[in-house]
Each structure stands twice: as C-alpha cells, then as structure tokens.
Design a protein around this nucleic acid. Structure first.
Lengths: 192, 192
DNA sequence: CCGATATGAGACATCAATGTCTCATCTGCG
DNA sequence: CGCAGATGAGACATTGATGTCTCATATCGG
C-alpha cells in the first residue's frame, strides 16, 4: 500500500517545509515561492506538490500557528491559579510562535472579505476568558475590556517579535518585557 | 508666471490625494494605484503625475505621517509636567495618525535593506527621551527600557487602530485604552 | 536488477499591477 | 475667441510572481 507510505513521508517533509517557510516569512514577509522553496532546500515544483499555491501555504501556516497557540494555551493552564500568573505562563509558552503570529497578523488584512479560520475565534475566546477571570476575581482592572486586552496582547507579541528580530531589544527580555508591560504598565508601583 | 500657480495648485491637490490615499490604504493596505486614484476622484494618469509610482506614494505618506507625528509631539509638550501626563497628551494628539502609522508599520518591513527615513529616528529619540525622563524622575519603572516602551507604544497604537477599524472596540475608547494599558497595565492598583 | 514514486530543473502560459504613452477634452486666462 | 496647461480615458509594453507542464534523474523497496 504505497498510499500509507506516501501519506507518512509527505507529512514529515511537509512539516519541515512548513517550519522553514515560517522561519523565512517571519523575517521577510514578501518572500517568493521560489525563495521559500530554496529556504526549505527543495525545488519550486516540489513546494507546489505540497502546497497548491502561496495562499494554501499561508493557510497552512495559519493552521500551524493556531495549533501552536492552542498548545501554548493548554500548557499555560489559563484556568489555574492567579490570572496574572497564568498570563505570565502563557506569554512564556507562546513566545516561540510570536514571530509567526506577527507575520500572520499583518497578512490577515489580506484576507479581508474571505472567512477567517475559526481557530482564531477559539483562541480569542480563551484569552478573553482569562482576562475576564482576572477581572472577576479582582486581579485585573475592569475599565479595560477583555477584548481590548486580547488585541493588545497580540499587538505586544508582534511588536516584541519585531523589535527582537531588528535587534532593538534582547531576545532574553522578550517574555519579561511583554508580561510586565501588559500586566504592570510603565508606571512605577509605590509598593515595589 | 504659470509656474507659481502650477506649484500652488499642485500642492493643494497633492495634499488631497495624499489624504485620500491615506484613508484608503489605512483600510486596505493592498489597494491598487487604480483604486487609490478612484478614491481620490482622479484618473490613474493624474495620480502618476503627482507621484511617480507606488513607491513614491508610500514615501510621501511616510513623510506625511512623520510630519503629523512630530506635530503631535510638539503639541503634546513632552518635556513639560509629569511624564505620565505627557504620554496621555501625546496619545491623544497622535490618535488621528494611528491608522496611517499602522499601515506604514507593516509596510516598513518591505523597505528592508533600503534606508529608512531619518524622521523615524527623530521621533523614536523624542519618545525614548520622554520615557527616559519618566524613569529618571521616578515616575516610570526602570526595568522596561525606553526603547521597548517606544516600540510597545507603536504596537499598541497599531493594534488600537486595527481593533477600532474592525469594530472590536469603540473609537471613543482609543486614547483611554492605550494610555491606561501602557502606563498602568492590566493589574488592578491597590490604591484605586 | 526493476519498477514505481518522488524530485529537480526548466520551459511555458497566465495574470495582475505597474509605468508609459497618446490623444481628445476641459478649464481658466488673456 | 484662442491658447496653454491640466485632466481623463484608454491603449500598450513591461515586469514579477505564479501555476502548470514535461522530462530526466535519483531513490527506495521488492
């Protein structure tokens, strides 16, 4: 049954291609299919055998990013312990996907009109629920809506990934910078 | 001297075209030169008479955005009073340019390799100086670098403009959302 | 060794956006 | 009115990316 072998081998290679493409497009969002193929060490023809076209590739990257974000969300256990600590865990877990997130974040406006992957709605809902939980247990302020906090988190992740890739801030500071700004803000606390 | 009249009239029309293009590209960053021309109520030929090409148009929008940001920075008087209050004034003044800023923010990665407009360096420096002033007078925490706070401000402005244009948050909340998150963070203060 | 399958290389047509050009028309001014 | 400059409409070539195709080659399993 060559079908089974075919499927298996393709899946492995497909994943490798996908991750190469993610790494490249994170740095250069306008990279050509040819450049993507070269970056993955395959020919353009083979790239097309894996992904019908650029659109399909971006969609696959979107699915990958969604899967990684949901996995990060799972690992972060957003329903356990303090909401602030959960946010810290989440940012730490999602850091590796931030570059891809930033790429898709700007690519999304290209999908206007077309339907969005419903995975984003799931993630948005889980993030908003985390912020809402923090509000309800008194940890977070209530004048900033969960929806806005969710959008702001995306924006800070994208900014952080961009600033790191540009060398303007150190990669090791990524989590700290984002978490501290998102949770504590720039104002110095009297207590600490 | 038709040259004088010519220069004057072109300047007026050019500004109108520029603002139409900004309004359109803010909503649809991939708009065609044809769409930009239609949005400005002129023909594609006339658009090309004003701006040599798409690149020149984006550069002109960049210059416009820089001018508006610097004007906002001037009006906000970042060197007067508390740094926190100065940031509030700044965000309020820069709000109208946030959409254009978001467009150029994602367009910038297209300019990789090519030299950046030095205006951004001026603005970056003024913003970083404001945050540094806040750190030095004890208002702001010192573990978040002025460079990161500057990047984060850009990111929040872009996220805010995007969220507003998508209808996910109310336009009237724009300034409050960004300022409060940037300065105070999501955590509820004991004092208030 | 043989055959099936995947791959690489490259030719080729397509397509969309762009930049350039011409020409008819309009407008304002003398 | 008559002219110069600006405009609109549209044709045209160019360019870059894309998608499709063919064929020779490499690889792997039987």
């Amino acid at each position: 049954m060559s079908h089974l072998r075919y499927g298996c081998l393709m899946a492995v290679d497909r994943d490798h291609v996908l991750r190469s493409a993610a790494a490249l497009l994170t740095r250069k969002s306008t990279a050509t299919m040819d450049e993507v193929a070269k970056a993955a060490g395959i020919s353009r023809a083979t790239l097309h055998r894996h992904f019908a076209g650029r659109d399909a590739l971006v969609r696959a990257l979107e699915a990958l990013c969604i899967a990684e974000c949901e996995a990060a969300l799972d690992r972060a256990r957003p329903d356990e312990g303090g909401a602030g600590d959960a946010v810290r865990r989440l940012v730490r877990e999602i850091e590796s996907a931030a570059g891809l997130l930033a790429f898709l974040y700007s690519e999304n406006q290209l999908f206007e009109g077309e339907q969005q992957n419903e995975g984003w709605a799931r993630i948005d809902a889980r993030l908003a629920a985390l912020f809402r939980r923090g509000q309800e247990n008194g940890e977070f302020r209530i004048d900033l809506s969960p929806v806005w906090l969710t959008e702001a988190l995306y924006g800070l992740l994208a900014s952080g990934a961009w600033a790191v890739s540009e060398g303007r801030v150190a990669r090791n500071d990524f989590t700290h910078m984002i978490v501290e700004l998102l949770l504590g803000g720039a104002t110095r606390r009297e207590g600490s």
